[in-house]
């Protein structure tokens, strides 16, 4: 577990799981969890590249912190919108919001 490749493999597994979650889940909160997984995959990549890629500066790790903060902000906004969906439709199934089509 001390080389770049294992981290990249884990991050790509995380990314694929996140992608799968976003594509298949219809529960709004579960879709958000899929998106978090994608963001964490990116996060892991940044930190791993920074640690093993021979980068002089810590910018990859700083980006990681930014992603954590942004993921939290994004989740807050998205959850507020999903709560509003629940108030209007009494479900968190994102397919229930289907008034506009075509």
């Amino acid at each position: 577990m001390d080389n770049l490749h294992s981290y990249l493999i884990i991050s790509s597994i995380l990314f694929s799981l996140g992608l799968f979650g976003v594509m298949t889940r219809r529960n709004g909160v579960a879709v958000l969890m899929g998106i978090e997984l994608i963001l964490n995959a990116a996060n892991l990549n940044f930190v791993a590249f920074n640690r093993f890629g021979g980068m002089a500066e810590l910018d990859g790790q700083v980006f990681g912190i930014f992603i954590i903060v942004l993921a939290a902000a994004e989740a807050a906004v998205a959850l507020a919108i999903i709560i509003n969906l629940f108030k209007n439709h009494e479900t968190v199934n994102i397919d229930s919001a289907d008034q506009m089509k075509g």
Binding site: G18, I81, I94, M100
Partner: peptide, 18 residues
């Protein structure tokens, strides 16, 4: 409709930014 717009916006937006 406004609620639906923001929901679709946030899901697609967060996904593509990911």
């Amino acid at each position: 409709k406004s609620n639906e717009a923001s929901l679709k916006y946030v899901i697609f937006g967060a996904f593509s930014s990911g």
